[in-house]
Simulated scan of single mutants.
Amino acid sequence: MAGTAAAAPRFLHIDALRGIAALLVVWLHVTQFFQAQLAPVQPMGGLALARFAQDFDFGRIGVMLFFLISGYVIPDSIRLDRPSPLATFAIRRVLRIFPAYWLSVPLGAGAMWWLWGRPFGWREILVNLTLLQDLVGVPPAIGVYWTLLVELVFYALCIVLALLHSLHDARRIAWLAALLAGVHTLAVFAAWRGVALSLPLAFLPLYLSFMLCGALFRHLDDGAAIDAGARRLLAALVGYYLVVFPLAASWAIGPRNNYVVCGAIALLVFLLGTRVTRLRAGLFVWLGRISYSLYLFHAPLTMLVLWWLLQQAADSPWRGQHMLVYLAACTLLGVAAAAVVERCVERPGIALGRWLATRWQQRAAARLR
């Protein structure tokens, strides 16, 4: 998902973690789509790749890892020591997220809906361009869009915390993360006991809690002053998300395809990648830098490949390949497209956002003189 690729060497490991997260999401979706669309009409080997990804829900692991990374990066990008920090933050974020997103919407409409004879009209496209489709009951052009709405909510939360002079207060952040964890736990316990709840609203506190945990780890890595209470709260949250909550959820619904276990795995990968072994391999760092476009475009491109395969004769060698071949081909196609979009769309958008933010800061500084 969207994030600012840091140029400083200390953040190369964060880009590498993004690359890993993106590959996990791609693995799940490509194998899932092929299992659903091609496997019923064409015998194929390697279905275990799909079952393995689904049993452990690689997509959920990747998304939760993205949320931790967003928490690690985003709050620190709000520079409260500069003129008009919140407006410039909003400008940069809008031009970071939306240009590539807007490009993905018509592609998603065509590849995920129109090619398969599913209705998706201009109203749906226009609503999707606002990124508010989930709030008004309009289907998304591409299923992964819901995570971007969570990102926007987190940005809004960061702005509110900044206005309350709490964005860089580790103790308040820790208490808020713990409160959100408690809200989510109570919500899922109520749902488990049969109480009807809005699942998006029940899960939002969990995602925001993970993001705030990422922000707390950034405080630690920056050497910021963190009192003992905040450190204990963070340690308790890590223990809860890594051990207590997964054990309870596994007892209640089993370990397979269990989102709580996925969150624990994501947190473990994040901890290993930021505190034990900081991966800086060039390939993963590069994949992290194109991960937003890879995240957006891999699904519609996979569906285009599937549609083309289904147009081929039943005895065509194109339709009888091993799942690993299709996974590799669709991943490479997605990576190639993401590299082009990152260079031609993302970078100009980021540059424009920085220029507009700088101009806004200059005008704000001039008004203060």
Rank of each mutant, 00 (worst) to 15 (best):
A2K: 10
G3R: 05
A5R: 12
A7V: 12
A8K: 14
L12K: 13
H13Y: 01
L17I: 06
R18P: 04
I20E: 10
L23T: 03
V25C: 12
V25P: 04
V25A: 13
V30L: 10
F33C: 07
F34Y: 05
F34A: 02
A36Q: 15
P40R: 10
M44C: 00
L47W: 00
L49M: 10
F56N: 09
F56E: 07
L68H: 11
G71K: 08
G71F: 05
Y72S: 01
P75A: 05
R79G: 03
D81T: 11
R92G: 11
R93A: 13
I97G: 11
I97A: 08
A100S: 13
Y101F: 15
W102T: 12
P106G: 02
L107K: 12
G108R: 14
M112Q: 13
M112W: 02
M112G: 07
W116I: 03
P119I: 03
G121C: 10
W122M: 15
P139A: 13
A141W: 08
Y145D: 02
V150L: 14
A156G: 15
C158P: 09
V160M: 10
L161I: 10
W175A: 13
A181L: 15
G182R: 12
L186Y: 05
A190N: 10
A191Y: 07
S209E: 04
F210T: 00
D222M: 15
A225F: 03
I226Q: 11
G229D: 06
R231D: 00
L233K: 06
A236T: 04
A236I: 03
G239N: 03
Y240S: 03
L247F: 12
S250L: 05
I253P: 07
P255D: 08
G263S: 11
L267D: 04
L268R: 02
V269N: 13
F270M: 08
L271I: 09
G273F: 11
R278C: 05
L279M: 05
L287A: 03
G288R: 08
R289D: 06
S291H: 01
Y295L: 04
F297W: 02
L306P: 04
L309T: 02
Q312N: 00
S316Q: 03
R319Y: 01
H322N: 07
L324A: 15
V325H: 09
V325P: 02
L327H: 06
L332Y: 06
C344G: 01
L356Q: 06
T358C: 14
T358W: 13
R363M: 05
A364P: 04
